[in-house]
Amino acid sequence: MSRTRDRRGRGMRGPGVMPRVPGRPELRTRRERFDDLVLSIVTEIDERWQERLGLVEYAVEDTPQIPDDWTSETVPLSSLIRGSGTTPTRLVVFRRPIEHRCEVRSDLEAMLLTVIVEQVAELLGITPEMVDPRYEED
């Protein structure tokens, strides 16, 4: 009978990948991958529409804060708060509700593109197809 390190079925006893930089994980977290996707979509759209958008602040939050008297059965995927004066417009994308609706990365990319494009289209007062040609209404 051979003895193995996993003799009580607890799984691996250390990281699967040793980090190149000590103290910093080698593999990125789901949150970091989500933030990178949002950043790539926002960067493209912001470069294309910067003159008309003006100052817009983009953010990612885990979940929306829903009031106790919320009557809708659906959870918001994003929030758009229009700026006034020196206050910038703020577009917030909610990570957990979006991830919950997506099974694979391609679904996540499509959902993020849809959510961000629709909010920017609302802000500009144009159709989503004009904001980004990749937009497909489902």
Rank of each mutant, 00 (worst) to 15 (best):
M1Y: 05
R3T: 08
T4D: 11
D6N: 11
R7D: 10
R7M: 10
R8Q: 10
G9V: 04
M12H: 15
M12P: 04
P15W: 06
V17T: 14
R24G: 00
E26C: 02
R28F: 01
T29L: 06
T29M: 03
R30C: 00
R31G: 07
E32A: 15
R33A: 08
R33I: 10
R33C: 11
L39Y: 08
L39V: 05
S40V: 11
V42T: 13
T43L: 11
T43Y: 13
E44C: 03
E44G: 12
E44V: 09
I45Q: 13
R48M: 03
W49P: 04
W49H: 15
Q50N: 08
R52N: 11
L53E: 09
E57L: 15
V60T: 15
V60R: 07
P64Q: 03
I66G: 00
I66K: 09
I66D: 02
P67S: 12
D68N: 08
D68P: 07
D68K: 07
D68C: 00
D68V: 08
W70S: 04
E73M: 06
T74H: 10
S78R: 00
S78V: 01
S79W: 04
S84C: 03
G85K: 03
T86E: 14
T86N: 12
T87R: 13
P88M: 13
P88T: 09
P88K: 09
T89A: 14
R90I: 06
L91E: 03
L91K: 00
V92L: 02
V92D: 01
R95C: 06
R95N: 08
R95E: 13
E99Q: 12
H100R: 15
R101E: 15
R101P: 01
C102M: 03
E103K: 10
E103N: 13
E103C: 00
L108V: 02
L112Q: 07
L113G: 09
T114S: 14
T114L: 05
V115S: 02
E118S: 06
E118L: 08
Q119F: 00
V120A: 02
L123N: 02
G125Y: 11
I126N: 01
P128Q: 06
E129D: 13
M130N: 00
V131N: 00
V131S: 03
E136R: 14
D138Y: 06
